[in-house]
Design a protein around this nucleic acid. Structure first.
Lengths: 194, 194
DNA sequence: CGTCTATTTGAATGTACTCAAAAGCGGTGG
DNA sequence: CCACCGCTTTTGAGTACATTCAAATAGACG
C-alpha cells in the first residue's frame, strides 16, 4: 500500500507540488503491524510519529497500581505518537499498541528537521495538526470535569460511532476514565430508557 | 515594557538574527490589562495568541449549570489563547481573564501567516510550543484519571508552588477539577498528617 | 463442546459533591 | 481603633456517583 491516504489528508491543510509529494514518499516509512503488536513501549524512546493508513491503535498508560488508562484511540487518518517522548527523545510514559492489523506512514525523528527544511509546508501541516490535537485535549479535560460518566459515554458514542464498533467495551470504559463494570451499568440503564 | 522576556524565551527554542528580532517587535502588540479584565469572552472569536510578559491569567469554561472550570492558569513566560477558536476563527468556548495587572505580547491571527512566512523560525517555535502544550495536556488527562484529588493537589503544589501563592484557593480547586469545599478538607487532612 | 475472554449483575464501600451555616480575613469608613 | 462589609475558607451532615470485589452469564474461537 502506498501513502495515498496521507497525501489526501495533507491536501486538506497544504498543497504539495508533485516533487514535494515524491520527496515525502521517499522520506516516510510505510510499515505494517499485526494486531496486538506494540508500536511503542513505556520506557523506550519514541522515534517515529505515525499516520495511520489503515487499522486502529490505542495509546495507554499503566499506572502504579497496574491499571491501564487509554489516552487516545486512533483510526485511519489520525496520528499517533507519544509526543512528549518524541520531541524530547526521552523514555516514553505511554504505550502504543495495534488493535487490528495496521499500516502506518511514519516520520522519523532522525530526519524530521531535514524534511521540514526541504518542505516547510510539512512543518506548517504538523503545526496545524498539533494545534488541533491540543484544542481537542483541552476540550476533553473540560468534558471530564463537567460531565458525568453517562454524559461522556453518550458524547463518545455520538462523536466516534465508528470507533465504538471496532473495539471492546472495556477499552471504551478506559478511554472514558471509568471502570468496565460501571460502563456496563450505564449501558444497561440506557437500554431501559429507550 | 518591551518584549525582552519574549525574546529571551524564544532563544530557548530558536536563534533569531537582530533583524528578525526587530521584525518581531514591529509585528507583535504589547498590551496591558488590569486585574479582572477579560482578554477573551466565551462566544467571541479569539483573534490573538498571547505571551505573558508579566502577570497572571486564567482560562475557564462556564458549563450548563453555571459552574466555572479552569482549563489553564498562566503566568510569566506562558502562552494563553483559546487555540480552537484561534485556528478556526470560530466563537470561543472559553474565557480568558486576568487575575493580576497583566502585560502581554500578542500575535494576531490577521498577520500570523505573514509572520511565519517572513520568519519561518517562528513557525518552528510555535510548533514546538504547541507540541509541549499537547504533551502537557495529555499528561494532565492521565493524572485526572489515575490520581485521587489529594494526589493531584500535591502534584500541583509541587509542580507550580509559585502559582498556588498567587491565586485564591477556590481557583486551585477549579483547576484540579474539584469543589472548593473538598480542597479545603484535603488541606485540613494534610495539615493533620504533618 | 470446552476454554478463554468479555460483559453483566449485585452488594458493600469510598471518594467527592451539595447545601447550609459558621468562621476567618482584608479593606473601608465612622 | 473598631465595626462592618464582602469575599474566601472551613466545617458538618446527608447524598450521589463511581469503584471494588465476587460471582454469574454471554460470546468467540478452535
Amino acid at each position: 500500500m502506498d501513502i495515498q491516504p496521507l497525501l489526501y489528508y495533507i491536501s486538506n491543510y497544504v498543497t504539495l507540488t508533485p516533487e514535494e509529494e515524491d520527496f515525502l514518499r521517499e522520506h516516510v516509512i510505510v510499515r505494517k503491524y499485526l494486531k496486538g503488536q506494540y508500536v511503542l513501549q513505556q520506557g523506550d524512546v519514541c522515534k517515529v510519529s505515525s499516520f495511520i493508513l489503515k487499522g486502529c491503535t490505542k495509546m495507554f498508560y499503566i499506572d502504579k497500581d497496574g491499571q491501564e488508562h487509554i489516552i487516545m484511540l486512533s483510526v485511519e487518518d489520525w496520528w499517533t505518537s507519544d509526543i512528549a517522548s518524541f520531541i524530547e527523545q526521552q523514555p516514553a510514559d505511554f504505550n502504543i499498541q495495534c488493535l487490528e492489523d495496521t499500516e502506518m506512514a511514519q516520520f522519523q525523528y532522525s530526519n524530521i528537521d531535514h524534511i521540514f527544511e526541504k518542505v516547510p509546508k510539512l512543518e506548517r501541516l504538523l503545526r496545524k495538526v498539533t494545534e488541533r490535537g491540543l484544542a481537542a485535549a483541552q476540550k476533553r479535560i473540560i468534558r471530564n470535569f463537567s460531565m458525568t460518566a453517562k454524559e461522556r459515554y453518550l458524547y463518545f458514542r455520538k462523536t466516534y460511532p465508528k470507533i465504538e464498533q471496532r473495539i471492546p467495551q472495556y477499552m471504551v470504559a478506559s478511554y472514558l476514565g471509568i471502570t468496565k463494570e460501571f460502563l456496563s451499568k450505564i449501558k444497561g440503564q440506557l437500554a431501559l430508557e429507550d
